[in-house]
């Protein structure tokens, strides 16, 4: 439970998950912002107005999944690093996960990484497909990782394997 230990429960996650049908259609955002806090940069970040306007900045973001095309611009604009993009049909066996990444060193393309879930537990391996770190992102890189489809909904962070015994 978020309030208890920072890890959302399945019920809490249910609130922010795009529908299964939408996930099947291709890249889409998942905004894991489940608390009413005063914050609105996501609304301004989206060029397609997929974030509904805030009546009050304390509202939780509301997303129009029909407008979202998974472009990922919003990822680097969320102060809470709570926005991810999921591409479920990415390939036959893999889904694509895009995460915000503010650590050094940055992973490299084609690098194999350990995949972690929301509690920081290892749930598998992934392959870095792309690392985006433009000036507009202001030092919040976006890392795209291909992961087995069955862990896509749980995968939320990566750990580099270089320099470790297993690496």
């Amino acid at each position: 439970m978020l309030k208890k230990d920072g890890v959302p429960s399945p019920e809490e996650l249910q609130e922010v998950k795009p529908s299964f049908e939408r996930l099947q259609e291709g890249p889409v955002v998942i905004v894991e912002c489940m608390q009413e806090i005063p914050c609105d940069p996501c609304y301004y970040a989206c060029p397609r107005e997929a974030f509904r306007p805030f009546d009050d900045i304390n509202q939780k973001p509301e997303i129009d999944y029909k407008k979202c095309n998974g472009c990922s611009i919003c990822i680097a604009h969320c102060p809470g690093l709570a926005i991810f993009v999921l591409d479920y049909p990415y390939s036959e066996n893999e889904g694509l996960l895009k995460i915000p990444y503010e650590l050094k060193p940055l992973p490299e393309k084609e690098e194999e990484v350990t995949v972690l879930n929301r509690a920081g537990e290892e749930i598998g391996r992934g392959r870095v497909v792309h690392v985006l770190n433009t000036k507009k992102q202001d030092r919040t890189a976006i890392v795209s990782v291909a992961v087995p489809k069955d862990i896509l909904m749980d995968a939320r962070h990566i750990r580099l394997r270089r320099g470790t015994d297993e690496g």
Binding site: L2, K3, D5, G6, V7, P8, E32, C33, M34, Q35, I37, C78, P79, G80, L81, A82, L116, N117, R118, A119, G120, E121, R156, H157, R159
Partner: peptide, 14 residues
């Protein structure tokens, strides 16, 4: 804020 807690948790900090 829970988002701060979540980003620490997924890095493996209890």
């Amino acid at each position: 804020y829970w988002v701060h807690a979540s980003k620490i948790r997924r890095m493996g900090v209890p």
